[in-house]
Computed example of a mutant assay.
Amino acid sequence: MNYWLVKSEPSTYSWDDLVRDKKTTWDGVRNFQARNNLKSMKKGDLVLFYHSMDDKAVVATATISKEHFPDPKDKDWAAVEIAAGKKLKKPVTLAQIKADKRLVDMVLVKSSRLSVQPVKEAEYSIVLSLSEEK
């Protein structure tokens, strides 16, 4: 199993939208590295759902429910289907992630603009544990 982080602007597609829809096609990615990450996703992989822009926080989890297929809007690009997981007890902000020495090598810290990125299993667990802290 692999772990990932996907970013979305809440005004474009939020966690609440995914909960409402239950699953969605994750398309519109127009970065080669992010596209390659989409192509590496496998059904059942776990995902951190990150609100970009104002929130800048991991807000929930999701699961890859369908492996990559051609982006419906442009067949030269890739898409996957993701299904809603669980909302975190509290959002884990980018500032919290950057401040945690255990996450210094996380792609989100080093390449924060990448919209689809791999996450190590330990990083995934740490982010979930940070959401549980008071």
Rank of each mutant, 00 (worst) to 15 (best):
V6S: 08
K7D: 05
S8A: 07
S8Q: 07
T12E: 15
T12S: 15
Y13S: 13
Y13K: 14
S14E: 13
W15I: 07
W15K: 11
D16M: 05
D17T: 08
L18V: 07
V19W: 10
D21F: 04
T24P: 11
T25Y: 12
V29P: 07
R30P: 06
R30T: 09
R30I: 02
F32P: 14
F32H: 15
Q33I: 06
Q33N: 11
A34T: 04
R35F: 00
N37R: 05
N37Q: 11
K39N: 14
K39A: 08
S40E: 13
M41S: 08
M41C: 06
K42N: 15
G44D: 10
G44M: 03
D45E: 09
L46Y: 11
L48P: 09
F49V: 02
F49G: 07
H51F: 00
H51V: 01
S52R: 01
S52L: 01
M53S: 08
D54H: 07
V59G: 08
T61S: 09
T61Q: 08
T63F: 11
T63C: 12
T63R: 15
I64W: 04
K66W: 03
H68G: 08
F69E: 09
F69R: 05
P70C: 04
D71T: 01
K75T: 11
K75F: 04
K75N: 11
D76T: 12
A78L: 00
A78T: 00
A79Y: 01
V80W: 01
A84M: 05
K86N: 14
K87S: 05
L88V: 02
L88R: 05
K90S: 07
V92H: 01
V92K: 00
T93H: 01
L94E: 07
A95V: 04
I97S: 06
I97G: 06
K98G: 05
D100W: 00
D100A: 01
D100M: 00
K101W: 01
R102E: 15
L103I: 03
V104R: 13
V104P: 10
D105Y: 03
D105Q: 13
V107W: 03
V107L: 05
V107D: 09
L108S: 10
R113C: 04
S115A: 06
P118Y: 07
V119F: 09
K120A: 15
E123D: 15
